[in-house]
Write a protein that binds this DNA or RNA. Sequence first.
RNA 1: GCGAAAGUGGCGGAAUUGGUAGACGCGCUAGACUUAGGAUCUAGUCCCGAAAAGGGGUGGGGGUUCGAGUCCCCCCUUUCGCACCA
Length: 821
Amino acid sequence: MRSAERDVVTYEPTEVEAKWQRRWESDGLYNSDVDAERPKHYALTMLPYPSGEFHIGHWYAMAPPDARARYMRLKGYNVLFPMGFDAFGLPAENAAIQRGVHPRKWTYSNIERMRGQFKRMGTMIDWRREAISADREYYRWTQWFFLKLLENDLAYRNRAAVDWCPSCNTTLAREQVWGDDRRCERCQTPVVRKELEQWFFRTTRFADELLDFSQIDWPERVQLLEKNWIGRSEGADVVFHTESGDPLRVFTTRPDTLWGATFMVLAPEHPLVAKLTTQDQARAVEEYTAQAERQTDIQREAADRPKTGVFTGAYAINPVTDERIPIWIADYVLMTYGTGAIMAVPAHDQRDFEFARQFDLEVRPVIQASGEDVPDGDELLAATTHQGTMVNSGPLTGTPADEAVTAAIDFLQEKGTGRGAIRYRLRDWLISRQRYWGAPIPVVYCDRCGVVPVSESELPVPLPDDVEWTPTGESPLKLHPTWRHTSCPECGAPAERETDTMDTFMCSSWYHLRYLSPHYDAGPFDPEEYAYWMPVDSYTGGIEHATMHLIYTRFFHKACHDMGIVGGTEPMLQLRNQGIVLGEDSEKMSKSRGNVVSPDDLVERYGADTVRSYMMFFARWEQGGPWNSRGIEGTWRWLKKIWTLMLEPTEEFTAEPGVERRLRRKVHQTLRQVGEDFETYEFNTIVAALMELSNEMHQARADGAAGGDAWDEACDIYLRMLAPIAPHIAEELWERLGKDYSVHTSTWPQVDAAAAAEDEVTLVVQVNGKVRDRLVVPVDIADETAREMALASEGALRFTDGKTVRKVIVVPGRLVNIVAN
RNA sequence: GCGAAAGUGGCGGAAUUGGUAGACGCGCUAGACUUAGGAUCUAGUCCCGAAAAGGGGUGGGGGUUCGAGUCCCCCCUUUCGCACCA
């Protein structure tokens, strides 16, 4: 009966998938709860922005990690695989402006749609733990964290020149300004600089901690990007003085070359410029400064542009030589790095060299390369950076160059004119945004009391729904008729709310904590959940967040650690990055190019299991690559073949023992490989291995193995291995083979090492490194036997004939190389 | 300019980390079965060679080694990040 029925059943993914998705949901199969008895595994994938539609990149980012989380579950871990939405942000507001839909409505209906797409993907997400950053119960705690940072002097307000996107009408963090032409990360509009009073977080205070990756397993590439971004430089702060006595601080990585400093250069915006400029230079300086100011708005152009600058008319005293050296201003010195002023050593710094040649300033070498004469500064063609010995350097003269930096610092410290110092490229994180759709900054301005934090019991400071969001450059909250008016939490007098909202990266800096207990209202997270689940064991997402989210979230966690809010110092122990799925034309997918692949269409045509499997198979996951619309056919065929392979009526069992032994060997070898590849995120070879095994099973069936014990074992193990990858078809076949629900709550099989072991190997016979024969021999063949068999093999004899065997190398159980001439 | 990663069949990609290069899949070729197929099945598919024998082959050139896709040096190309950071 049953087999007759099986005969006609064809694989209908749509039916199978809908059936099991309903069942799993009603059974709460993917609920994860604290269970002290079992080891935990927190698998986290970067939360999506609810843009409206799932694109294929979402599948690529989500499906393989989902498979891995499922694998960990089968391995016996209590797995938490949560999901949520990074729901505040500009696109919602832009949609509102363009289409007149309220950002809230736009965002939440997108979430609705995308949640449905997630469910169709067949993920093991525990939706009870969903967190949405635009929910009041979420941003209440985002605001709470802001207050904590403020309380602990990790948040501050400052008037500073900040990057402003004229199209998004808001300030941007340094990290959100991209490229050499300084464009807005979101809309590509060139940014301008504005002087504004803004909120910052003290990320720079954590620079060294952020550079320490010793406790976490993050890709080298990410570490490097972050190291470059943080840009730590060791050197010295040196105090020069102007002739009129004003201190002029510089930072240098080369204090050893101080004796070669023949002039100084200030950034045009340097505060001392106006004061020290002499009467007769005033006009030139003003003109240059005005021009530089205009230029910063575009950008100060490429590095290979000729140097420009103007003499201020003033002089400084070189603290080590007591010489009088001219002070210039030039736009190659940036106000935003170091102190905005440099000592120029043209003999040993190429930029200073170019400047000196441009304006005919003295070039004085202070390092002599070993075995060479001291070069004449006037004749140098470029700055020299070689090692050697210090010359013309007062007490340092004669010091080997590699000891000179330390010696110079010691000398400065003794003299009291400088000390060792470390500078970073990293800036403090600017978090103010002049936009509506974000978490309001919970601060009130009172004429009498100044900046007053909203008290915790008053949180959240709610975002009003009735706003005009015409972009004006001011926060829409400022234009609201009543919202900003409040009373001072301290003195009760009329006061005004901060009308800026927070950068959405603030929301996403702690979402992994909110997942632990999204509805908890005694704190941002339930400490019990934290104690069990944190830290995140496996974090996956795109590398584009290396210098943004990933720096912010670690800063955030470390700050919370220092404030006693969390116990650990690292939020995510392991990080892995998926690559990018390109269009079939190998270009980035975009609507304008028309090369966008819609996952919904694929799911409709092939089913979620095929799409999931193909996501794992089609490229090396960490690398990504161009889409191939024909390639998915192969994966689709594979699943169909498995279906028939397992459901075809069983013929008579006629297999010889060798067939079963071979089948079992392949099964257990595959099992071993699949397990290893899951550990290392090598998803493509997992699917390849399973394809190989199904080919082998096909052969075994042809050889009459179906119905035997080895066959049954093969099916059983196969389905458990398939379950993480293609959860629906695995569950369906599991049921049809009469096994207990659910395959997803079963266990990962044990490798039978004896079954996996080969009893024969192909011994490669080489003569002078070239393969001349292949012999099938017992796996445990003695080296001496192998050697003799190799020497006697037909292929070897043909090539050793008439030659003398000089040497024979035996690689046990693998290869024999005969050296003969 | 600085830093990093990567170059393997027509294509995506394997290769136990120094030991049979090209697993698996796409595509292609031939055949079978079908009213038909863009379904399914079988066989083949790195290049030269009719075939066998053999030879060549992992961007290019050198080197180390019994043996190199893998290690070292030089060069080329591509991609990414930073970009006058003192």
